[in-house]
Amino acid sequence: MKEHLTISTATDLLRLGAEDIIFITSDGNYSTFMLAYGNSHVVTMQLGQIEKLIKQQLEYEGAKYIRIGKSLIINSDYIQYINIPKQQLILSDGKMNSYSQTASKEALRQLKDLIDKTIK
């Protein structure tokens, strides 16, 4: 059965298919979910709280999600390109949307190592 991440506040409820989330970025108390097919949702929640929800609600599906530094969580299924010297990480839904994110060289090196391990 398809797993969902549900974010429920006093006034609204957001339910997202775990496999539809490409990445989540944050600025302070606001976090933006970028979804496959190009739509996005903003929630008033810090990235640490979202990380907690992913851990609680998405058991093994949650292993696809990787926290990179303070302001980014990615779904590793959507990683298309990593360039460590340029500090560039491109996530793509394989159709029409691709998103370029920056991260530290060290974080990208670790991410690349992690992905490399899954190939073998």
């Binding site: 640490g48 990380e51 907690k52 992913i54 851990k55 998405l58 058991e59 093994y60 599906e61 949650g62 292993a63 696809k64 999600y65 990787i66 926290r67 990179i68 530094g69 303070k70 969580i73 991260a103 530290s104 060290e106 974080a107 670790q110 991410l111 992690l114």
Partner: peptide
């Protein structure tokens, strides 16, 4: 436990 710096990554869910 939940702190992370810009040079770190971590897998969020259960890996195995």
């Amino acid at each position: 436990k939940t702190d992370i710096n810009e040079n770190e990554i971590r897998v969020i869910g259960k890996e195995t």
